[in-house]
Design a protein around this nucleic acid. Structure first.
Length: 259
DNA sequence: ATGCCTCGGTCTCCGAGA
């Protein structure tokens, strides 16, 4: 089974690229972030025509997440618990039946948090605290659990082309990294780092020739419960997609599992 | 240089992204 994450940066602007990638790769489950539309605006029929079930958690203009799956959804959960006031659509989770059990797939778009002297940074940190509590409860189920998406976290210096330039940014500073470590220390495996020690990027800024210079960062991650990590075969970063016409600034990252 | 692109909205500019 192949489970992918892709910050699509606007589903309406990227439908052609998504259709092409789905036709080409035929992944089983695709988790999208930044769909930037309400649920009614998602091109559901076009994606269903390619053989996918579609569940969305959208909002107007910004954020928004979706899961596309060849398997039917057994359950769907929308939104991160822990703050009644939070109206941003950044989490959707699906449960799927597989041979001999289930897989639980939680798709997140973790807040960026910049600028750090604005309310956006404490929002990011509070969101991460809520995510840690959520992940802890999911891990207690002892299921194959895949927590994936755009984490807006650079885990380590090797995950940035120019780590010194990023240090202090909301993606790469002590308060953010401390929470990311706490999340992993619950018992989650960083899938990419389970298969390679090589510098690997998943995002290249639109600006300043970042793609041409390979000035990327790794911020799109798959974190795995022990039951999912046991079944991990490989991780594929679809870097070529960044070179397509009118690309997203993120590329698809895919986990291959013996599920 | 708190920009350099690119998105969505209502829109010919602005906020947000990272």
């Amino acid at each position: 089974m192949r489970i992918a994450t892709w910050n699509i940066n606007g589903i309406k602007a990227r439908l052609g690229q998504l259709e092409q990638w789905l036709r080409q790769e035929e992944p089983d489950i695709v988790c999208l972030q930044e769909i930037k539309t309400v649920d009614e605006g998602f091109p559901r029929a076009e994606i269903e025509a390619l053989g996918y079930n579609v569940e969305t958690h959208g909002q107007k203009s910004w954020n928004g997440v979706a899961i596309l799956s060849r398997l039917p959804f057994d359950e769907v959960t929308r939104g991160l618990p822990g703050d009644e006031e939070d109206e941003q659509s950044r989490l959707i989770e699906g449960v799927f039946s597989v041979e001999g059990g289930i897989v639980r797939v939680c798709n997140i778009y973790l807040p960026n948090g910049n600028p750090v002297d604005s309310p956006k940074f404490p929002y990011k940190l509070a969101w991460m605290d809520r995510l840690i509590a959520y992940a802890e409860s999911r891990l207690s189920l002892e299921e194959p659990f895949v927590l994936l998406g755009d984490f807006n976290i650079i885990p380590a210096p090797i995950d940035a082309h120019d780590p010194e330039a990023w240090w202090g940014d909301a993606l790469f500073r002590p308060e953010s990294l401390e929470r990311f470590r706490r999340l992993r220390n619950l018992g989650l495996t960083d899938a990419l780092r389970a298969v390679t020690d090589e510098p690997t990027y998943t995002f290249w800024d639109f600006q300043a020739g970042a793609w041409r210079r390979n000035a990327g960062i790794r911020i799109d991650h798959l974190l795995l419960s022990p039951q999912a990590a046991d079944r991990l075969e490989d991780v594929i970063v679809h870097k070529d997609v960044r070179g397509w016409e009118k690309p997203s600034d993120h590329v698809p990252v895919e986990g291959v599992f013996t599920l």
